[in-house]
Design a protein around this nucleic acid. Sequence first.
DNA 1: GCATGTGAATGGATTCACAGCT
DNA 2: AGCTGTGAATCCATTCACATGC
Lengths: 220, 220
Amino acid sequence: MGSRTAVRDVSELTTGRLSVYLRCLTYLESIGQKTVSSHELAERFHLNSAQIRKDLACFGEFGTRGVGYDVTLLKQQLVRELGIDRTRNAVIVGAGNLGMALADYHGFNSNGFHIVALLDNDPEKLGRISRSGVRVLPADKLADVIREQQVAIGIIAVTPESAQTVHDALADAGVAAVLNFAPAQLRLRSGVKVKSVDLRINLESLSFYLKGVKEGFTTE
Amino acid sequence: MGSRTAVRDVSELTTGRLSVYLRCLTYLESIGQKTVSSHELAERFHLNSAQIRKDLACFGEFGTRGVGYDVTLLKQQLVRELGIDRTRNAVIVGAGNLGMALADYHGFNSNGFHIVALLDNDPEKLGRISRSGVRVLPADKLADVIREQQVAIGIIAVTPESAQTVHDALADAGVAAVLNFAPAQLRLRSGVKVKSVDLRINLESLSFYLKGVKEGFTTE
DNA sequence: GCATGTGAATGGATTCACAGCT
DNA sequence: AGCTGTGAATCCATTCACATGC
């Protein structure tokens, strides 16, 4: 059922690019293009054509030699491979600025994902509702919400100090995947996949580059 | 004066880890630890000791054989190498949920970074002030603000449709580094370093993993 | 002829393992 | 003895280049 290839055999770099390809195809479909070659995809979106073909080849043979790929067909295939042909529930822990913004972030509430609740232990914040209608619940309801709403994904948007505690609570409650925004090195829990997005590190990386600019190493 | 090693010679993977090490050291310093070995760092924070040593070796020899690294000294060294021993100004373009949240994000307004303004072309939003005091200015003031306040970093928090336009405007105004939150493939401009943070892709990558879990491939 | 799919080649990054210093 | 710093070895990802099929 589904793919021949086990999830473990595909690198995360590849899956990240699948998401990119999916976007490109969605765009091409929106402008009415029926067919696209790996070359054209590469040109238009600044990618590498060989890499596109390699990435796609992980899941079967979707192209036609001499022609290219059927835009709509390939798009559907990617949607299925990424597992966003169904909708998954998620909770956000931490109803601060970031948590609130994420709750209203369109990409988190469409096409395969649905934020069912924000959780916070600050009594001030309880009962508030984000612009898009996500309610702030007390943190001690975490396990209940996850069980009742079959939540598969936990999003951590708390301080680095609380991050490990929240992560453990999510893991204990049975969440299988975590997206962590706290700048902390989480101790991983078996059976729980973690992706961390570290906003600060990205800025620091730019800073490192800027140092070179000032000293005259502009990288072209 | 600065490092022997050109910026271009150090991979981004390395600089990302330098940021991580910096955090670890800040923590160790806060609990009063004077000295640390690459082994201890690796154990405590789930890293690899050989990699730590290799990464640090890019910038000189800071350790003492038989002993380890002086926590405070190494920390200062990393701060300098990352170029966050001075403060850089940044602007955020797009005063929606995400832009507002980023303006108030502590990691963006401390230790080397300062958000001087939000910019938006929605008249509704002009004049608003974020919780931490960042003002929303009209988008057409972009170039002025960048020049007057010597802004080095532009942060893109607009829709994918406007992202390229904003990026070009930032580049034209002389910004040297861009942190892009829009889910779009930007066409790069020479002399401008871009880092993209794609929130949606991270979720999709988790979704891909979850697909495997349901089918029983838990990666342990 | 043209574009896919893929083995082979290249290029990086990580890890190993040890020489050399304290 | 202990730990750094680093060449050598390994692993992984990207790119090349072509055989294969439309």
